[in-house]
Design a protein around this nucleic acid. Structure first.
Length: 208
DNA sequence: CAGTCGCA
DNA sequence: TGAC
C-alpha cells in the first residue's frame, strides 16, 4: 500500500492490485446481480437538470442519488422505489480489512463509465459523518483519476487506476476534491462491452 | 448570493 | 438550491 502525496494531506492511500483477476470476476458477478435488481439510471445535476455522463446504481441500506432538487442518500431506487439490494460480502470484507475501526458501511455507489464518461472534480460531503473513510474499487478499463486538496483551487495530481485497484480517502484526505478525467478504452478484458465500473463504499449516518 | 459530482 |  502506498500513501499518495497530494497537497500534503495524509490519509490518501492507493492499493494497486488489491483484487486478483479471479476476485474481480467474482465481484463483478455479484455487482451484475445487484444491477439486475436495481438497474443503472442516469442522474441529473441539481437545479440545471443536466445529465451526468456516468450511470449509477447502489447497494446497501442507503444509496446516493442526484436530481434537480439536490444530492442525497435514500433507501430506495429513484425509478422503481424498490429498496437497494444488499451489499455483497466481498465489499463488507474489504471495508473490515481497510477500515477496521469504522462503523459498518451503509452505501455502495456503483458508477458505470462508458468510454466517454467523466466525473468532474468534487468532494464526497453528503454524509452526516466524515470519520469513516471513503473506499473506492476500480473494475474494467483503466481511468485517469485526479486528486486535489480541500479547496477546489488547490493544485491537483493525476494517477492511473487499473482494474482491481483500491483507493482510500480517509483522515485529512477524506474531503479532498477528486474526479475522473477519462477512461482509457480497451485497457481491460474484464467487462465484455468495455468501460469502467467504480464502487464507492461509505458510512453515511452517525453511529449510535 | 455563493457555488456547482455540470459545461465552455 | 439552501443558507443567510
Amino acid at each position: 500500500m502506498n500513501d499518495l502525496s497530494v497537497n500534503g494531506l495524509s490519509g490518501l492511500s492507493y492499493l494497486p492490485g488489491y483484487f486478483s483477476r479471479a476476485a474481480q470476476e467474482t465481484l463483478l458477478e455479484q455487482i451484475r446481480a445487484v444491477v439486475a435488481r436495481a438497474p443503472f439510471y442516469r442522474p441529473a445535476m441539481p437545479r440545471t437538470g443536466k445529465a451526468f455522463t456516468v450511470r449509477m446504481s447502489n447497494c446497501g441500506p442507503l444509496g446516493w442519488v442526484s436530481d434537480v432538487s439536490g444530492y442525497r442518500y435514500q433507501p430506495h431506487h429513484p425509478d422503481s422505489g424498490n429498496p437497494w439490494p444488499a451489499m455483497p460480502a466481498l465489499l463488507t470484507n474489504l471495508w473490515k480489512d481497510l477500515a477496521p475501526e469504522a462503523p459498518d458501511p451503509e452505501a455502495c455507489l456503483i458508477n458505470y463509465y462508458e468510454n466517454t464518461a467523466r466525473m468532474g472534480l468534487h468532494q464526497d460531503r453528503d454524509e452526516q459523518t466524515f470519520e469513516a473513510p471513503v473506499i473506492s474499487v476500480s473494475l474494467g478499463d483503466t481511468a485517469t483519476f485526479r486528486v486535489g486538496g480541500l479547496s477546489r483551487k488547490d493544485p491537483t495530481k493525476s494517477f492511473r487506476l487499473q482494474s482491481g485497484d483500491v483507493v482510500v480517502l480517509g483522515g485529512e484526505a477524506r474531503l479532498a476534491f477528486h474526479g475522473i478525467d477519462r477512461v482509457l478504452a480497451g485497457t481491460s478484458t474484464l467487462l465484455k462491452n468495455g468501460g469502467r465500473i467504480n464502487l464507492t463504499l461509505r458510512r453515511v449516518t452517525q453511529p449510535m
